[in-house]
């Protein structure tokens, strides 16, 4: 099965940041928004909404085919798992929070977990319940975020894009 991506339509983004809250909540111990807030948890969102040029641009991990973050990881924590998922969630214990991946991600999509002994955290798709929709997509009220596969043309343009910047 082709790896599904979180597709972004910036024109539909109102900048409400619901995706960020939903993402953080889905990664909380409580597993739900109000429960996490009530418990005083501080889970980190792994999607970002940039405001640039008067427009909103949601950004998160693109799960690159040759991920710079995996190359950069000096601890063999970040890796490409089955199906193309770029993640370190299943190797969190190896992460030392050195921020090599943070420095390397062209999307700025990796961040520090904010814990006392911080680790790098990113979109790891550990947020999808039975229907498989990522929390950020479920939370988006305007359809700025959708979930699907990039068509063939786009896939090749992505490869080209990444190759270009990997080599620059």
């Amino acid at each position: 099965m082709e790896f599904k991506e979180i597709l972004i339509r910036p024109d539909k983004c109102t900048g409400c940041l619901s995706c960020r809250l939903a993402c953080a909540a889905a990664h909380s111990r409580a597993g739900n928004f109000l429960g996490a807030v009530a418990a005083g948890e501080k889970p980190r969102a792994r999607i970002f909404v940039h405001r640039a040029g008067g427009k909103n641009l949601p950004l998160n991990c693109r799960h690159c085919t040759d991920p710079p973050c995996v190359d950069a990881c000096v601890a063999a924590s970040m890796h490409t798992a089955g199906g193309g998922l770029v993640t370190n969630h299943d190797r969190q214990e190896r992460c030392i929070g050195c921020w090599m991946c943070v420095m390397s991600c062209p999307f700025g999509a990796i961040r520090d977990s904010g814990e006392e002994d911080p680790r790098a955290v990113k979109c790891d798709r550990q947020c999808a319940p039975g229907d498989g929709l990522p929390a950020c997509v479920r939370a988006c009220p305007t359809g700025a975020l959708t979930y699907g596969t990039v068509d063939q043309f786009s896939a090749s343009s992505r490869e080209e894009f990444l190759r270009k910047w990997l080599q620059c």
Binding site: E5, L7, I8, P10, L57, L59, S154, S157, F161
Partner: peptide, 12 residues
């Protein structure tokens, strides 16, 4: 930003 973030996943 859009240039940095690639193109294919950003639909217009």
């Amino acid at each position: 930003m859009t240039w940095l973030s690639g193109r294919d996943h950003i639909l217009r």
